[in-house]
Nucleic acid binder design. Sequence first.
DNA 1: GCCGTTCTGTGGTCAGACCACTGGACCGGT
DNA 2: ACCGGTCCAGTGGTCTGACCACAGAACGGC
Lengths: 271, 271
Amino acid sequence: MTSMSVPDGTELPERPSADAWRPVHRSRAYELVVERIEEQIATGALTVGDTLPAERELSERLQVSRAAVREAIRSLEAQGAVRSSVGSRPTAGTQVVAMTSDALTRLLRLHVALSNFPLADVVEARIMLERSSATLAAQNAAERDLTSLRELLDRMDDPTIDQATFNDLDTAFHVALAESGHNRLVTDMTIAIRESMKAPILQAFGTLEDSAALIERLRGEHREIFEAIAEGSAQRASERIEAHIRGAHASLWGGDSPSDDAPQSGSAVAS
Amino acid sequence: MTSMSVPDGTELPERPSADAWRPVHRSRAYELVVERIEEQIATGALTVGDTLPAERELSERLQVSRAAVREAIRSLEAQGAVRSSVGSRPTAGTQVVAMTSDALTRLLRLHVALSNFPLADVVEARIMLERSSATLAAQNAAERDLTSLRELLDRMDDPTIDQATFNDLDTAFHVALAESGHNRLVTDMTIAIRESMKAPILQAFGTLEDSAALIERLRGEHREIFEAIAEGSAQRASERIEAHIRGAHASLWGGDSPSDDAPQSGSAVAS
DNA sequence: GCCGTTCTGTGGTCAGACCACTGGACCGGT
DNA sequence: ACCGGTCCAGTGGTCTGACCACAGAACGGC
């Protein structure tokens, strides 16, 4: 689907009477169940916090097996829209929730591991996203956002820090920065992309000769970015964060082409 | 998860010896299956195009029921990583695929319908994304990309066009524009966001007094954007597309605040 | 009034069966 | 030799019915 629409730009609005013989689509039971549930969400009959009917009841009402209902729920769960928990009334059953960043992160991490995206593309996208985050943060950051960022900076200063912890804190810093912009979508996308780079970055870190030097440099850059945001200078903040990310990646993946294939996930050696 | 890290910036890197008594996580069988499969993907043992073992075999090897295996597959399918099909050998079974934009689109549409994101945030994010798309397109567009865009422009000129078709073509135009930038991640995100706005936009279109006038204006703006890209002027292209999107949304959702709640999905009246 | 027990409803899991579909092997007629 | 149909094996898709573990609420003895 991603790379359809070749030269002729063929897309949804098919030319009349063209390919009327496209294959019929045989929906699976669980897909129909998903549709029904999404319908309820679309019409507003089901919103965040609501609880779905019990699986047994749903399966009876929709006239499908419980397995079909469960598969539908697994699908929605993977998209971060519902969450199931056992028990009795209050904590009961399957609730509609909002776990976008979780779901986005899982999705992106999976596809990064599948190397569906050239690493360079991911880096470019990340730069674009975080420039935007930085701009928004410079404009909208509240005092407690700055406090949060400051604390992370301080914790990163720990001289005995190991690579994995620094990586975690660095991630947390960029996440907190995104949250300072107060745009949910941009934040969630930023989190997802930084989070899905965590493993590859840590691995690359492990292969570095002098990681301490890089860490020291990143510390300084973080503080400069922070200052730009604290001053409310969107321009400077976005420029600095671009340089920061670009520089970090250059150091990690070397000046040479960032190995187009498999960034490889899995726990790296670390420290 | 989205809104953790309150003031104190608490995150993954928990302070040592703190909350060592956090609740144990009881994994469900299907989650373990997902993990195993992701493991195979992470190590590169499983890549795009490969076929998973048959459900029955997998369930036996992992010592879980087939239902658990199936739920795991549904989860991965929802993330656009695998696809199942019946049959015999060649088309057989569950394959690892790459349907990022599909999965991303579904996810985003769902959460837009859930109104997890204020509409204004989505618009801001879209502007940022498409600015980037336009910039990349101006730099990297090949001849066939331009041809594709041109054809869509022509088809949008049809004077007898109805709102729904125009909306589809408009979507296709923005998608083609994103694809012209040749950055897979940015493209997929752009597609997802434009696609998830389709229903709300169509609905807003239906409430318009003079939709023909808006369509006419959009046609002109599209051509101006196209020209900037064809000239390779990234600066102009990104400025124009921002003005284009901002203007369109202003017309659609009015100058007043864009109703923070439920953009509401579902098929709108159209034409 | 307190606290332990029982009850009830929920998701989690499993085993086993059957169906629908696909492609290939096979075999007959031409 | 070719073509066509039939059969077969293997796959996902679906269903049924059962049991388990858990969490809260109602109950009942102290």
